[in-house]
Amino acid sequence: MLRGVFLLLLCQLCGEALSRSLSLPAPGPVIGLALLAAGLVLWAPREDVDQTDVGKAANALLASLSLLFVPAGVGVVQYFDLLARYGLALAVALIASTVLTLLATVGVFLWVKRRAAA
């Protein structure tokens, strides 16, 4: 388990270093994600990846993924007045735009998939 946590942190650290030094557009953790996936493909563990150290550590973290957003979420309270100042316009825009984004993304995904299959 400790080895798994170390590997996750190491991937993030390398991602952070690459992102900064090469001024990549992707943030450190996202590059770390790509590094971990690429590492697993190259290493190709023989057993089920869930049984490896890194697999156990990753699954333990992902099982409580929602929890990790709570501290930032509570931060919203701090800016209620800021939000109230811009008020309704932002609320309406957020809800409508999120619905439109979901529709556009899923629509284009399915449309291209169907065309590619045909």
């Binding site: 993030q12 770390g32 869930d50 992902l62 990790l68």
Partner: peptide, 15 residues
């Protein structure tokens, strides 16, 4: 832990 959890998404991605 948000950072390491983002990295951890590499495991289900690999699977």
């Amino acid at each position: 832990l948000l950072g390491p959890a983002t990295v951890a998404l590499g495991v289900p991605l690999y699977k």
